[in-house]
Simulated assay, not measured.
Amino acid sequence: MRASLLHPGGRMTVEHRPVPKPGSAEVLVRIGAVGVCGSDSHYLRHGRIGDHIVTEPIILGHEAGGVIVDVGDTVSRTRLGQRVSIEPQRPDMASRESRRGRYNLCPHMRFFATPPVDGALCEYVTIGETFAHEVPAEVSDEAAALCEPLSVAIAAIRKAEVGMGDSVLIAGAGPIGLLCAQVARASGVGRIVISEPDSLRRDMAVNFGATDVVEPGAGALPGGDVDAFVDASGVAAAVVAGVRSLRPAGRAVLVGMGADDMTLPTSVIQNREIVLTGVFRYANTWPTALSLIGSGRVDLDAMVTGRFDLDEVPAALDADRTPGSIKAIVYPGGVPESVRFESTSRDSSAWRPFVNPATHVDKEVQQ
């Protein structure tokens, strides 16, 4: 099979590797589409994320979907031909965390595209059968891949514990921030404020669920009256401002990857009894993700702004530097003709189930 490899030092190549064989309880998936995550771009540019360092060639990519083409000995052959979304985790299901249902925190986790574990920017991968989630016909290949970042947003909004009539402040209108806005709206949240310094991303946020958008330092953030704060930026100043925006007993959820340490307003946290927590990946989110997509309450297809084949992976990993880019998709088998000639800078204003008519203004998004 063909695979895109990142080498130490940042060089990328496309090489041939053996097609993996599924273990007894695994399936072999022919990859249809792979979403590019900020972590993939970070590995390319910096060669590491925290303690995870690229010391040997590695296949990136952990947002993926495809078709089951082979199964292990204990897997029903009725699964052959199923279209699936891959939950890219291999936990030790006997660990204490896994037995508690928190398998995302398993200390023995082997996660796609986290050194030294290979990811999905290749033609075939294996995964445990329970982590290959069947997708219905109405879910596109691209949406099947993007169930992974959607799962991060679902985990974040679950931890924020917001619902009908509540309010949430989200820092950052990147892919995760926009997905958090969509999930919050689908959960019945009445007020969704997104804080974002980039004007183009603020315009996009209105089309993806935000009822209000503010520019940090210029727009007025909610003053101690929102029920929850979700940081999808990793910026220390945004975290501090978000914590200060919470009402008493509000919840702050940290999703964005920023500095290892930051100074927080501890007196605010203590005096208002604010609950502060983090999100590390997800657990038990795929059924919810597929329900949200299938019902139309979340639109992942509208977030795709670029499509690339395996030979164009370096360009795909740099697509986040293009103004207006939200999500790049890589097709290891080649970009299908059915989408090849679609605009690679879709105007997200074409999709509007979540638009607040009181705040929305039509604008052509310049890509």
Rank of each mutant, 00 (worst) to 15 (best):
I58M: 15
L80S: 02
P57T: 12
R77Y: 05
L60Y: 10
D70Q: 00
G66H: 14
H52R: 08
G66A: 04
G81E: 08
G81P: 04
T55Q: 15
P57G: 00
V75C: 03
G81H: 12
H52M: 08
D73M: 06
I86G: 01
V84I: 04
H52Q: 09
G61V: 10
D70S: 10
T55G: 11
V84T: 01
D51R: 14
D51Q: 09
G72Y: 00
V75R: 11
V84C: 01
L80E: 08
I58S: 04
L60K: 05
T74D: 15
R48L: 00
E87A: 07
E87W: 04
G66P: 07
S41T: 15
T78G: 13
D51A: 15
L60M: 06
T78Y: 03
S41D: 12
G72H: 08
I49K: 09
R83G: 01
D73F: 07
T74C: 04
R48D: 03
V84E: 03
I53P: 02
L80A: 06
T78E: 14
G50F: 10
Y43M: 02
E56W: 11
H42F: 15
R45V: 10
I58Y: 05
R45L: 14
I86Y: 13
V54R: 04
G72I: 11
D51G: 14
G61I: 12
L44V: 13
I53E: 13
R45Q: 13
I59D: 08
I68Q: 06
